[in-house]
């Protein structure tokens, strides 16, 4: 078992504006116990990933990305190209090489 967890994080639909306008991020997560020693979490789930993103990738206006411990309304989260609702949303346990996408819905036409 490798120590770190490699993921690809994608932002689109305007969500990338909060992340230095970069749409694709290849990240490597340390062990969750090391990163969040005070938390009871044993494994990385989306819930902890959001905390990590806030601390490491998010550049501005966190309220336009997060609300409470989840994403704000209007952002769709996809785990390997499928709606996170199909995998337990915040509780989904991240796997090696997962692709997690945060899409802000568009309204223009």
């Amino acid at each position: 078992m490798p120590e770190t967890l490699k993921l690809q994080i994608n932002f689109s639909g305007g969500a990338e504006l909060l992340f230095d306008k970069i749409k694709k991020h290849n990240i490597e997560l340390p062990s969750v116990r090391k990163y969040l020693p005070d938390s009871k979490a044993e494994k990385w789930t989306i819930r902890e990933l959001l905390v990590w993103i806030k601390g490491n990738l998010l550049k501005e206006r966190p309220e336009l990305f997060l609300q409470g411990d989840s994403v704000r309304p209007g952002i769709l989260v996809l785990i390997n190209d499928a709606d996170w609702e199909l995998f337990g949303e915040l509780e989904y346990e991240l796997q090696q090489n997962d692709n997690i996408m945060f899409i802000s819905t568009l309204h223009g036409g």
Binding site: L64, R72, P73, G74, I75, L76, L106, H107, G108
Partner: peptide, 14 residues
């Protein structure tokens, strides 16, 4: 998919 609307400041327009 979207039970509540997004905050107005997060909405872009053409």
């Amino acid at each position: 998919l979207f039970p509540s609307p997004p905050p107005p400041e997060a909405v872009g327009s053409c």
